[in-house]
Design a protein around this nucleic acid. Structure first.
Length: 257
DNA sequence: ATGTCAAAATCCTTTTGA
């Protein structure tokens, strides 16, 4: 099973890019972030015509996540991240597909830091720690994937010294990500490629893609039951070079049945 | 401080979030 994550940066504005990518690479499951569309504006018909069933959690203007599957309708298991009834931002959706529970997340950016947005990011991470611990306890195959808005180590940043005060790289968020891997989640890309420079995001500014000035912020975390089944992983680097494309590129893994 | 992009409100330019 090939599972991909893609921060599409506007599901309607980037729809031609999304459909082209689906057609060319044919992932079985896709987790999308930053739909930037309310529920009623999700392009369900176009996605169905491309061969995918979908569930989604939209929001006007910002955020929004979706799970696409061409292995039948995703069986929804969680809508929204538990732990704060007041939080109305659409950042977590989860489904079970072919026996694997797949959590699709869009972690808050957190800039500017320090500040209320950064506090919200850290609080969101706390809620994720609690919820992820609950998922691990079930001893079932689980994958948490999406835009974590964290570069886990210096290897994941083209110029680490320029990012030390940024909300995507401050010590607290790197520690928060490390806490997940310390507790038993495996970073799939680093499991297969421990030392390679792999980026998943390139700023629109200053020709970042052309200069390979990127960040690795889109991740796959695997529960122990999934790790022995991991057979491949990579990024669809070329998509970042297309017209009207997202600033992120798709990342994928393959898991044996 | 800057740079790019898309979509919203301040509504045909400016502001906002990323």
């Amino acid at each position: 099973m090939k599972i991909a994550t893609y921060n599409v940066n506007g599901v309607n504005g980037r729809l031609p890019v999304l459909l082209r990518w689906l057609g060319e690479t044919k992932p079985d499951v896709v987790c999308l972030q930053e739909l930037k569309a309310p529920d009623e504006k999700f392009p369900e018909t176009a996605i169905l015509e491309a061969g995918y069933h979908a569930i989604w959690l939209g929001q006007k203007s910002w955020n929004g996540v979706a799970i696409l599957s061409r292995l039948g309708k995703p069986e929804e298991t969680q809508r929204g991240l538990p732990g704060d009834e007041e939080d109305i931002q659409s950042r977590y959706l989860e489904a079970t597909i072919k026996g694997i529970t797949i959590g699709c997340l869009y972690l808050p950016n957190g800039n500017p830091a320090p500040g209320p947005k950064y506090d919200y990011k850290l609080a969101w991470f706390e809620r994720l720690h609690k919820y992820a611990a609950k998922l691990l306890k079930a001893d079932k195959p689980v994958i948490i994937t999406g835009d974590f808005n964290v570069m886990p180590t210096e290897l994941d940043v083209y110029k680490p010294e320029r990012w030390v005060d940024d909300a995507l790289f401050r010590p607290e968020v790197r520690q928060a990500f490390k806490k997940l891997t310390d507790k038993g989640w495996t970073d799939a890309i680093r499991k297969l490629y421990p030392d390679e420079v792999i980026y998943t995001f390139f700023d629109y500014f200053r020709n970042a893609y052309g200069r390979n000035a990127g960040l690795r912020i889109d991740h796959f975390l695997l529960s122990p039951e999934v790790v022995p089944r991991l057979s491949a992983a990579g990024t669809d680097h070329q998509v970042r070079g297309w017209e009207k494309t997202s600033d992120h590129l798709p990342v994928w893994i393959e898991v044996e049945d």
